[in-house]
Design a protein around this nucleic acid. Sequence first.
DNA 1: CACTATATACCGACCGTCGGCATATGCGCT
DNA 2: AGCGCATATGCCGACGGTCGGTATATAGTG
Lengths: 110, 110
Amino acid sequence: MNEPTFLILTALAGEPRHGYAVIEDVERITGGRVRLRAGTLYAALDRLRGEGLIEVDREEIVQSRLRRYYRLTGAGEQRLGAESARLREQATIAERRLRARRTDFGGATA
Amino acid sequence: MNEPTFLILTALAGEPRHGYAVIEDVERITGGRVRLRAGTLYAALDRLRGEGLIEVDREEIVQSRLRRYYRLTGAGEQRLGAESARLREQATIAERRLRARRTDFGGATA
DNA sequence: CACTATATACCGACCGTCGGCATATGCGCT
DNA sequence: AGCGCATATGCCGACGGTCGGTATATAGTG
């Protein structure tokens, strides 16, 4: 799973959000580093809905503008949990190797 | 940075490795989940070399077959460290939100 | 009056990866 | 002897996901 997709699921794990609110939340949790493009977001939303990881929560009309809220499904929760575990493991391995480089000089690492 | 690229840098963070050894190491550290395609690997190696994140360590001929070893540069170390930190942060946020869902029912989360 | 923010949605372009193929040698099995 | 597998680098076309831009529409701010 790519980063934007992961971040979209994370945004929806907090609470049901509509598209634009997802863009804002992702920008917030990445410290401003990732600002999702509209094209990326809505394409991903459709795709994730097709995969059953998210679903439409409800629709609201605010100031004659549609807001379509999405929420994480049970499958989406499981998937996000699995992806999180994977990221954490990979980060741990990389950090262990980087640390070993700074300590011993030239030795191999597990 | 995408997952295969991250894993290639992680493989080279352990010790200098030639292409095929990178494929094997990535397979090992992902528990068999990721088996890099030759096309992916060598294209990524060229690209990372162009970005200055890795460089050729040495070349050996073993059984009349070439082995080109690559190693991480200083810039590569820094980059891998930054990416690891990013993965860890994102995993932490996702996990916190998933945990909150199982505890309170329907509340918003930071 | 123009610009920005809000909000959804489509489109072409691009990049990285996938999957397959080519090439070459040595090893183990039948 | 012949076949497949592992080793090893590398090219190629296809594909999927993201980018960047545009369209549409309304409300608020300078």
